[in-house]
């Protein structure tokens, strides 16, 4: 299957896109963090912060697979811990609605897992998501991510306390599932069908 998207370093030209996404209340509706509008300068500073190599975090621009490599979203690993060999999969944001076709999203997940487990050779990748973020919860099932527990009322957003789930996948699990073809598109589609049928 040809790649839908590529992953590259952030560039100055990404600032406009980031400015629009960071100020899109709908886009930020289900993220764990709080939403507040930012200025263009703040967007530029954010982009600069993403550039280059950092010990504890790494950001990539998700971009179109063509000569232009136009940014359509971003993805990141944070809290990279080389003592405990773990990192926080901070999440995927696909800001361009046209690229919310599922393929970019799956490729992004696999890119992060590949980087974390096969390049950095981390042992554990974890993440946090709002309990009402159904897409995120479904993702756990699709990628064989284990939900470890609930951080009760751990986030205050939009005037209410929200539960957050913490989940993880281990390197041994990722490699096993990968070798079994569980991350091929065909397998992912099969699991979606099964989950949808079981939810009816």
């Amino acid at each position: 299957m040809g790649k839908t998207v590529l992953f590259r370093e952030f560039e100055e030209r990404d600032t406009e896109f980031i400015y629009k996404c960071k100020n899109d209340k709908d886009l930020n509706r289900l993220i764990v963090g709080s939403f507040h509008p930012i200025s263009y300068d703040e967007a530029r500073n954010w982009v600069h912060g993403c550039m280059g190599e950092h010990e504890s975090y790494k950001y990539w621009a998700i971009c179109t697979n063509d000569d232009e490599q136009r940014i359509v979203g971003w993805i990141s690993l944070s809290s990279i811990d080389r003592v405990n060999n773990s990192a926080d999969f901070h999440g995927i944001v696909i800001g361009d609605p046209a690229y919310r076709d599922g393929f970019a999203w799956i490729e992004s997940y696999l890119f992060i897992y590949d980087y974390a487990f096969e390049v950095l050779k981390l042992n554990r990748v974890y993440g946090h998501s709002r309990i009402d973020h159904h897409a995120s919860q479904m993702t756990h099932k699709l990628f064989h991510v284990t939900e470890e527990g609930v951080l009760r009322q751990s986030v205050f957003k939009d005037g209410k306390y929200i539960d957050v789930t913490i989940s993880s996948i281990l390197r041994s699990e990722y490699l096993k599932f990968k070798s079994e073809g569980e991350y091929e598109m065909k397998s992912v589609l099969q699991r979606i069908k099964m989950i949808k049928k079981s939810n009816k």
């Binding site: 999203w105 897409a135 589609l189 069908k193």
Partner: peptide, 28 residues
């Protein structure tokens, strides 16, 4: 409500109900 999971669900539905494989760029 449009999002990546919905996109995937559509692709899965088309595969299941119509026996047709849709690529991401086609849906796009």
């Amino acid at each position: 409500e449009w999002g990546s999971l919905i996109g995937l669900s559509i692709i899965a539905m088309i595969d299941d109900e119509y026996g047709v494989t849709i690529k991401g760029d086609e849906l796009r």
